[in-house]
Write a protein that binds this DNA or RNA. Sequence first.
DNA 1: CGTTCATATGCCTTGACAGGAATATGCCCC
DNA 2: GGGGCATATTCCTGTCAAGGCATATGAACG
Lengths: 113, 113
Amino acid sequence: MTETFAALAEPNRFRIVELLRSGPHAVNDIGKRLRLNQPQVSKHLRVLKRVGLVTVQPRAQERVYKLRAKPLKEFHDWLERYRQLWDARFAKLDDLVAELHKKEESNGRRKRK
Amino acid sequence: MTETFAALAEPNRFRIVELLRSGPHAVNDIGKRLRLNQPQVSKHLRVLKRVGLVTVQPRAQERVYKLRAKPLKEFHDWLERYRQLWDARFAKLDDLVAELHKKEESNGRRKRK
DNA sequence: CGTTCATATGCCTTGACAGGAATATGCCCC
DNA sequence: GGGGCATATTCCTGTCAAGGCATATGAACG
């Protein structure tokens, strides 16, 4: 999981992923659109492939890279577990907890070991 | 956005975030639970704070760190734009596109510039 | 088969960052 | 106000990764 994060942490790699969202692209095509030198594109794609974010399919001499659904879905599922943080219902609960903390703080000074 | 990724790419920082999902924690508490030295915990929390993933609230001498909803929600929203990748409906469309590509390939050799 | 095109790999330098140990800051309590 | 905690910061060192350039691999096509 953290490897996926690391892969997306690199700005140019992030741009590549964003570009690939619109569909598969060949290496040279990516390089031209993002103004990147070909070797860097290949290297970045290598990393993205290693962590499973993309797959390759040869088309003659070209290599067409495509986004893979699985890791992005896993990603999405992971974030779902944090949904409570921003859900309206929880926001209220959050306030409540904050209030409880305040109380605990004000009369906790004597109780504290 | 990529900064958030970078912050989460560090395994120990990821563990801290996972721990904070269960609620706010003080620095020393985090260190004990995750078996990390206090300075590293402080440093990691500094990074998490810089990218806006956490906030601090002083409680006497302790500093209680808490997850922030906003960046995680933004994150979630960003991933929503990729949902088509793993949605069933799109899976079919994907197959269709693949087939079209195959056709284009078979009779495209002469058409290609 | 040799040339050309698309892509991959190797080498090098440089900068960023994590961990460890020591130390500084800040707050509480007597 | 001085000692004791909880936390932050500093310095140091080693590691790792990105970019630039040169070069290697590999396929198509005359």
